[in-house]
Design a protein around this nucleic acid. Structure first.
Lengths: 204, 204
DNA sequence: GTAATTTTGGACCGTTTTAGTCGAATAGTC
DNA sequence: GACTATTCGACTAAAACGGTCCAAAATTAC
């Protein structure tokens, strides 16, 4: 009975933390990190500002957790979509498209690339570096399967996956910064990228 | 020659003022009046903050001019759309719909109803009062035409138009504050309002 | 019922940001 | 050259903001 109540209390605390994170995300999206205030977040919650500080250490703390949960969510989505495909070519295609779409929604979240808040950007870059190895592992696994199935002709799948991930990173800024066109334009450009990628791989 | 150059200089000054107002409007829409800064506006212009103060007295001065030009633009649009109709019933319908649509876009502009910046809201309310008489005159004109054409049966068109304008005002907050649904929902609710209005008028 | 713990929020503090001003520099006109 | 128009970074005072404090309220434990 006693542990049950304590468990409920822990769950309630987690629930309130989640609500704060979701509210903070809306406020960060609407105003950007800089202009969003702790008072804004508290007001949307219907609570006092100090109450927010009871659950989180600082504004930056909240921001990092919001980014973290979005990255995790994005990674989960990518993994699920890639797992659904059988063909290695489709796996790679889905991986690229989901990755870029995920980043696009992250752009809306922190609005940092545009407004140059270096501190947050550094943090995002740093967080992204942690997932680099994971990305390379995913792409290497896809390429290995393709070679095994006779679809791809590659000597070194690890080096190739590094090249692919690096190319994707290099495309992030130009692709995401561009305001013109909606998802359709992004889709078209990604298709073109994949064509080049496949021709380059398949033709050898 | 001399007056020509001075005229050009006046035109250039007006052009720069217009560009400042348009830029300010974008910044106000994005961040709201409170969070929008003079530095934001200047940066979007590619100018120094002091340059803005060369053309405008204050941030509030700019805000009032932005609101003023939007209200004027809205009134012009309403007048033009109402003038295009022949039937008094259609005139009234178009008037109501254009009026509410115009207010909806103004809501986006200043974001004040939601964030309760009293100073700006008072100013907007005050500005709106100035146009009240104009609204009553427009609606009275429409009702007079309807009575003349035998479509409406009314004893006192002026009193009725006051009632209609008051009813529209009373509906502004609930209609515009509601986030749910797009223009379609607004259109439906306005149609329903008009049905009630017409049945109430036409059935007597 | 009382004590302990958890949660809350307005007041406060130190720092940062912002509206607005100043004065010098540059550009344009006569 | 004199005068006017325009520009902008530095500066000031006031306001805003992140974060803390501490008492009160609410909840839980005994």
């Amino acid at each position: 009975m006693e542990t049950t109540i304590k468990t409920e209390n822990m769950a309630k605390k987690t629930e309130i933390r989640t609500r704060i994170l979701n509210t903070a995300q809306e406020v960060f999206i609407r105003y950007g990190y800089g202009k969003a205030t702790m008072d804004d977040i508290a007001r949307e919650m219907g609570k006092g500002k100090s109450s927010i500080y009871y659950y989180f250490t600082s504004k930056e703390d909240i921001f990092k957790e919001v980014i973290g949960k979005e990255l995790l969510s994005m990674k989960t989505r990518i993994f699920n979509e890639v797992s659904k495909q059988e063909d290695a070519r489709e796996k790679l295609k889905v991986y690229v498209v989901e990755r870029m779409h995920g980043l696009k929604s992250l752009k809306d979240l922190y609005n940092v690339l545009r407004t140059e808040f270096t501190a947050q950007r550094d943090y995002i870059d740093q967080t992204r570096q942690q997932t680099d190895q994971e990305e390379i592992n995913i792409v290497t696994g896809i390429l290995d399967k393709g070679v095994k199935d006779g679809i791809f002709h590659l000597e070194d799948t690890v080096l190739t996956s590094i090249a692919i991930v690096t190319a994707l990173k290099g495309m992030e800024i130009p692709l995401l910064i561009t305001e013109t066109g909606g998802d359709n334009l992004l889709e078209q450009r990604l298709d073109r990228l994949l064509d080049v990628l496949f021709f380059g791989i398949i033709k050898r």
